[in-house]
Design a protein around this nucleic acid. Structure first.
Length: 622
RNA sequence: GCCGGCGUAGCUCAGAGGUAGAGCAACGGUUUCGUAAACCGUAGGCCGAGGGUUCGAAUCCCCCCGCCGGCUCCA
């Protein structure tokens, strides 16, 4: 907080000002953070009133409010939440002052003697300092570095929203605590606006739109995490695939096809069984061999013989590369494939189309010489930019994922540093902002990942560009260099959409279901006003369909108003209204999805307008 | 996977030990209408699955499955 330029005039080295500040001592953002953090203290106070045996963990401010983690004798119910909320408001009205102080470590240990989580924090912080901060209001004292308003009455409007499980210190091997979340903003209006935003986000939620627009469904019977694309959803997917295929064909990619299964031996050699075996579907063995007798061989010994659903294509593409001996003159060699992969994501991770168990990547493995890394990474970045421009999705973020501590990384410092700097330079050259993430690299190399937020604000990885320093050697890939020596190629793993499923989910939310014409499952619908207009309506539809457009006719016996309403709700880009005047003129009255009325247009003009939008993949109509 | 919540008609939801309901959607008929909802009618359900308690279970208990929120994970 001290690095905020607006803090410059404030005596930040004054311990008291840091611990507690008045309204005019800090800027607005800091004041809001302080209100949120102070609210978390009141929350903890009240929860301890209700559960004197409760253990308290941490309670920081977050983007939309605050939370506090507790270990309590029983789970909190929704009724508890409203009770807690009432008590919090009562405490706030009492206008307790926040008093911040520093005390010796020993005293802190004593004060929090019955709070094991605080003891652990004291252990951690006491390494740096002989004293620790505490903050007291009313009867409640918390270990705290400070950051409060002056008194509880200054805390802004809030509402407790939900309770969720959270592991202590974010470690799934540590105790799981109950986290109470609250939303808090400076004004009532902003708090209301926050909840209005959530409602709007729920209307954009691809799971809801996917059902309403009949794009996809799931079936308990088929299995969790296996998306079933309905005809309209499949159309959009086909358009996505058509786009990437066009872009890649134009950039020297060759498409291959390698099916859906491979033997365990392959994934053993590639290192996947060791590193990611837990995410792979269980091994498939010859039927009848799983008799369940106790002295049957252990699973691991048989994995080499067993078949596995492919969780990724890379080892198979490398094997395919090995079909013949390659010269450096052939490189880069770009193997693209659009097959479905299968990953056994844990049940709690599944989420609509954005986290599934069967996913179709626009995957490619590019075999290059080490000298070609920079140029080829730049080529891939250009492809990514082009794709996102086409969809009109400018809001993404890049991570550059680097190796960190720990044994999962391949030990070859020189290769790593070459690969990392090649990636970094390519990103810099493309003028792309990115955040470096230590310890996020794949086991085989560094990567640059593109992330986009969904309607609910959750980030999802779409594009990925990964440098592989290890698998080509493990699988025996070579090329003949200009000196006649056999060398190991570098492989770039890259996906641009990432998976079509996840990308479709993001697209649905990005457009709120109102797809640009080129993606729209139904691009135009004819709306005859009365039955006598049906013939011309069908003629128009047939003409436009012949021009390669997806057009239908609403020939139901409803009134035109109802047909328009249905078409709007279906988010069809253009409604072509046909009455006596239009039949007479060989035209249709064009109503745009946004409600705009273009008036009567001759069929030729309509055809031309729609085919041009389709051809150019324009991000229209709005 | 873990914690919590929730599963009743295609959708949104009522029903809380005693004969399963409404609106919208669907389907049939009437109507043929100028830019976001015409009218009348019909049909629709192993109340997520299995087990238990009870004379009797959508309702209470157990156990699965699925969904939602969060945590952890995410080649």
């Amino acid at each position: 907080m001290a690095d905020d330029p607006y803090d410059a005039g404030v005596a930040t080295d004054d311990g008291d000002a840091a611990g507690v500040a008045s309204r005019d001592e800090v800027d607005e953002a800091e004041w809001l953070r302080r209100m949120r953090h102070s609210a978390a203290h009141v929350l903890a106070q009240v929860v301890l009133q209700m559960f004197p045996e409760g253990k308290i963990a941490i309670g920081p401010p977050i983007d939309t409010g605050f939370y506090y983690d507790f270990d309590l004798p029983r789970p909190l119910t929704p009724e508890d939440l409203s009770d807690i909320q009432k008590r919090m408001r009562k405490e706030m009205r009492r206008n307790h002052r926040f008093i911040w102080d520093e005390i010796p470590v020993d005293e802190a240990r004593e004060r929090f003697a019955d709070q094991p989580f605080k003891q652990e924090l004291i252990d951690q912080f006491s390494g740096d300092s002989d004293t620790l901060g505490i903050c007291t209001h009313a009867e409640f004292t918390d270990l705290c570095r400070g950051g409060h308003v002056e008194s509880t009455k200054q805390i802004g409007p809030f509402r407790l929203t939900n309770v969720a499980g959270a592991y202590w210190r974010g470690n799934e091997n540590r105790p799981q605590l109950q986290r109470v979340y609250g939303a808090l903003f400076a004004t009532r209006e902003e708090l209301d606006a926050h909840f209005a935003r959530i409602e709007e986000a729920q209307r954009r939620d691809h799971r809801r739109l996917g059902r309403d627009l009949e794009l996809f469904t799931f079936s308990e019977l088929v299995g969790a995490g296996v998306p079933l694309l309905l005809p309209d959803g499949a159309v959009i997917r086909q358009e996505m695939e058509r786009l990437i295929r066009e872009l890649q064909d134009a950039r020297g990619y060759s498409e291959v096809w390698t099916g859906h299964v491979a033997r365990g031996e392959l994934f053993r050699r590639s290192g996947h069984l060791d590193n990611y075996g837990d995410v792979m579907f269980p091994a498939m063995r010859e039927s009848g061999r799983e008799s369940g007798h106790e002295h049957s061989d252990s699973a691991d010994e048989n994995d080499s013989e067993a078949y596995f659903l492919k969780p990724m294509n890379c080892p198979v593409h490398m094997t395919l590369y090995n079909n013949s001996l390659h010269s450096y003159r052939e490189l880069p060699l770009r193997y693209a494939e659009y097959t479905t992969l299968y990953r056994y994501e844990k049940s709690g991770q599944l989420s609509g189309l954005t986290r599934v168990r069967s996913l179709t990547q626009d995957d490619c493995h590019i075999f290059i010489t080490p000298e070609q890394i920079s140029e080829e990474v730049s080529n891939v970045l250009e492809l990514v930019q082009t794709l996102f421009q086409t969809y009109g999705m400018p809001n993404f973020r890049y991570d550059l994922s680097l190796p960190g501590e720990g044994g999962k990384y391949v030990d070859n410092p020189e290769a790593w540093s070459t690969a990392v700097s090649a990636l970094r330079n390519a990103l810099d050259d493309a003028g792309i902002d990115y955040v470096e993430q230590e310890g996020e690299a794949a086991f085989y190399g560094p990567k640059a990942d593109l992330f986009v937020s969904d309607a609910m604000g959750r980030e999802w990885q779409l594009s990925t560009i990964q440098l592989d320093l290890i698998q080509p050697a493990r699988l025996g890939c070579v090329y003949v260099a200009d000196d006649g020596e056999r060398r190991t190629p570098v492989v770039i793993h890259r996906a641009i959409h990432g998976s079509f499923e996840r990308f479709l989910g993001i697209l649905i939310e990005h457009y709120a279901g109102a797809f640009p014409l080129w993606l729209a499952p139904i691009q135009a619908r004819c709306v005859p006003i009365a039955d006598r207009h049906l013939d011309w309506a069908h003629e128009i539809a047939a003409d436009l369909r012949a021009a390669g457009l997806r057009v239908d006719v609403d020939d139901g016996n409803e009134r035109m108003q109802a047909k328009i309403r249905n078409g709007q709700r279906r988010k069809i880009p253009y409604l072509l209204v046909i009455g006596d005047r239009e039949v007479e003129a060989g035209a249709a009255a064009v109503r745009v999805r946004n409600g705009e009325d273009l008036g009567a247009m001759p069929l030729d003009e309509i055809r031309e307008m729609l085919t041009e939008l389709k051809r150019s993949r324009a991000i229209q109509p709005a």
